[in-house]
Design a protein around this nucleic acid. Sequence first.
DNA 1: TCTGGGGTCCTAGGACCC
DNA 2: TCTGGGGTCCTAGGACCC
Length: 416
Amino acid sequence: MFALVDCNNFYVSCERVFNPRLEGVPVVVLSNNDGCIISRSNEAKALGLKMAEPVFKRKDLIEQHNVQVFSSNYALYGDMSHRVMETLKRFSPHIEIYSIDEAFLDLSGMEVDQYEYCQNIRRVIQKELGIPIGIGIGATKSLAKIANKIAKKNEGVFTIDSERKRDWALRNTQIDDVWGVGRQYATLLKRNGIGTAYDFTQQNPEWIRKNMTVMGLRLWEELHGRSCIPLETVMPAKKNIATTRAFGKKTANIENLREAVSTYAAACAGKLRRQKSIARYVTVFIHTDPFSDRERYQSFSITATLSEASNSDIILVEAALKCLEQIFRPNLLYKKAGVIVSEITKGEAFQGNLFEKHNREKLDSISKVTDSLNNQYGRGTLKLAIQGSGKEWKLKQEKLSPGYTTRWDGIIEVGG
DNA sequence: TCTGGGGTCCTAGGACCC
DNA sequence: TCTGGGGTCCTAGGACCC
């Protein structure tokens, strides 16, 4: 049996832990650049605020109901997520961290009342971390997902542990709420008279295979209670790593783009080092504002191949800047840039190049020093000069809460 | 004025090989 | 009259997830 643990309205819940005045009132958290709504309290949902909706479109409603608005504070959410996962590990050694706010636990072989066991997990996470969670239990991951949705509307835990309950759960789940069915497939399925998860299980598997590939077929099996998606307890190394951002202010200035692109390239290098990998391809893209009525949308990108795979800031920044020079066109207002590294391999499986001009050991020791200084004194303490200050282009984050758990100056003061 | 930032997997079709 | 059959690899595009 699988249990899916999902934190309720996770980012909002994190904000509430350190700011209890937010309890019981509508709260939303925005995406980077304070652009879209990406987390909503139940009160905000009840007001009709939608997921991924641009916040400027709902300004009136937000003011009218005094909705509390926050910029994303990923340092806080990442740290809280880590604490939740560590706590969950006490309850099952077999755990897959599926996303920042979700984890699958393997409950098979445990001699416990699963419902009670999971209610206890909820109590512990609530008490120790202040984060509300819901847990769904089922014979497959897809059924656990469905159980989780039902759990949230009821007592926080729901178990699909009989044919009768499976039947009931599937009949009461809309097809677009099923894991693996997105907008396109939902439209297709509804057009063919499939409105619920139950209808889906009654459909001919040949038809599913033909219209939804093997992914659809796998889902069909899973909803019948036959597990096809195993628990992945070790996180596989990433195959692509990206750092991309929209700018706070559009810019035509190549100096700003150089700062941004080198900052993103260095960020990718850091992510590579953390998973002990090296990459051989570097892709850089820049594009103008896709929503503008005044200018035509234009987007440019190019991929460079390194002579030797690397995870050094210096190498990746150098390559990324060369890419930028090749794709940059003057007199355009750029809105966003990004760096993606791919062809990623483990650092040990290194394929050297006889004619490489850089000394790999030297670059590695530079990375070690900068990483340790930046860990100790905060990100950005030591960086390449080309990365600049970001003053001209950095994100808008006007409503950022403090780094309650990650910075000394963010710690809550009591009394005073 | 104002619209996020990451990822994964699958398939079809073309190029190329013998 | 008549023009094979089987592979692999790569890429772009489309679907999905949070």
